[in-house]
C-alpha cells in the first residue's frame, strides 16, 4: 500500500519535469544532471528554503539569469544544451559552482574543476534561488562534516561504495570515454557530502537510505584521516599503486644502481 502511494508521488514529480529532460540528458551525457535526479530523492528534500531570505532568492535569480540562463534556460527549466535545475536543490548548486565546475568553460567529456567564479555569498544566493524553485537536496548540516565519526566504518563504506572509481586512497581513476573520477585530496568535507547526495555528472546518487548521514560523516572522517596522516611508509608516489611503483623501480631504483655500476667499473681518474 505504501509502495503505491510512493509510486503516485513519483509520477506527480515526473510530471513537473520538462517532458524531454531525460532524453536530453542522455543525449548530451554531460553537465549538471545528477542533481536533477535528486528531485526524486524523497529524503533529501528538507526545508532548506527556510534558511534563505527572499532577498537572497531575488539576488540569486538575477545572478542566475546573467550567468546560467544561457544554457539552463531563463527559468532553470533546461535547454538542449543543459539540464533542468528544477528540484536539484541547494546542495547541487553549492557543489557545482563552489568547486568551479559551473559555469562550464566548454563542452567536454565532463565538467572539470576550475577556479571558482563566484564569491561564497553569490553561490549561496544562487543556491537559494534554485532551492526556491522546488524542494531538493539541501546544504548538509555542519554536524556531519566535522570529521569526528568512525574512520574504520567510513573506510569500509568507502571501499564498498567509492573506491572502485575514486581509488582506495582517493587518488581518482578512469571512467569510460575520457571521463574520470577526480582525486578527493583537498576536497572540502562539504563538497564531498554534497557530491554524495546529489550525484554530480556520472557519479551515482548516495541518498540517505543508501548511506546514512552518519555513514557519510564516517566516510568524510576516513578521508580526512588519510590526508592528515602522511603515509607511514614515506612518499606515496601519487598513491597510484603498482604502476607508479614499477616505473619508480625501473627509472630511479635500477637507474641509480646502473649509474653506480658505471662508476664502479670506470678506471679511476
Amino acid at each position: 500500500m505504501r509502495e503505491t502511494t510512493h509510486k503516485n508521488a513519483r509520477k506527480r514529480k515526473t510530471g513537473r519535469r520538462h517532458p524531454l529532460a531525460t532524453v536530453a540528458l542522455i543525449a548530451i551525457g554531460l553537465g549538471l544532471t545528477g542533481g536533477a535526479y535528486a528531485a526524486f530523492n524523497a529524503t533529501g528534500s528538507s526545508a532548506d528554503a527556510a534558511t534563505s531570505s527572499s532577498s537572497d532568492v531575488a539576488s540569486g535569480k538575477k545572478l542566475f539569469q546573467a550567468n546560467c540562463a544561457t544554457c539552463h534556460g531563463l527559468e532553470a527549466q533546461g535547454t538542449d544544451e543543459a539540464p533542468s535545475l528544477i528540484g536539484v536543490g541547494a546542495a547541487a548548486v553549492d557543489f557545482q559552482v563552489g568547486t568551479g565546475r559551473m559555469p562550464m568553460a566548454m563542452q567536454g567529456p565532463q565538467a572539470e574543476q576550475k577556479p571558482v567564479q563566484f564569491t561564497q555569498k553569490e553561490i549561496d544566493q544562487l543556491a537559494a534561488y534554485v532551492a526556491s524553485l522546488a524542494p531538493g537536496a539541501a546544504i548538509p548540516d555542519e554536524r556531519y562534516l566535522d570529521g569526528n565519526g568512525d574512520a574504520a566504518k567510513g573506510a569500509e563504506l568507502f571501499r564498498v561504495n567509492c573506491a572502485m572509481c575514486h581509488n582506495v586512497a582517493g587518488a581518482g581513476g578512469a571512467l569510460t570515454q575520457g571521463k574520470f573520477a577526480p582525486s578527493l585530496h583537498g576536497v572540502t568535507a562539504r563538497h564531498i557530502y554534497e557530491a554524495m547526495i546529489t550525484g554530480p555528472q556520472n557519479m551515482p546518487v548516495f541518498n540517505d537510505r543508501n548511506i546514512t548521514p552518519e555513514g557519510k560523516r564516517d566516510i568524510i572522517t576516513y578521508l580526512q584521516y588519510i590526508q592528515k596522516n602522511p603515509s607511514p611508509g614515506g612518499f606515496e608516489l601519487g598513491s597510484l599503486g603498482p604502476v607508479a611503483e614499477g616505473l619508480f623501480i625501473w627509472i630511479f631504483g635500477l637507474g641509480s644502481i646502473v649509474a653506480l655500476t658505471v662508476w664502479i667499473t670506470a678506471k679511476s681518474n
Binding site: 510512493h6 545528477g34 535528486a38 526524486f40 550525484g199 551515482p204 548516495f206 541518498n207 543508501n210
Partner: peptide, 14 residues
C-alpha cells in the same frame, strides 16, 4: 534490507 522506495533514480546499491 532495502526497500524499493529507498532506491531513487540515479542511485546505486551494493
Amino acid at each position: 534490507p532495502i526497500k524499493a522506495s529507498d532506491v531513487t533514480i540515479g542511485s546505486v546499491f551494493h
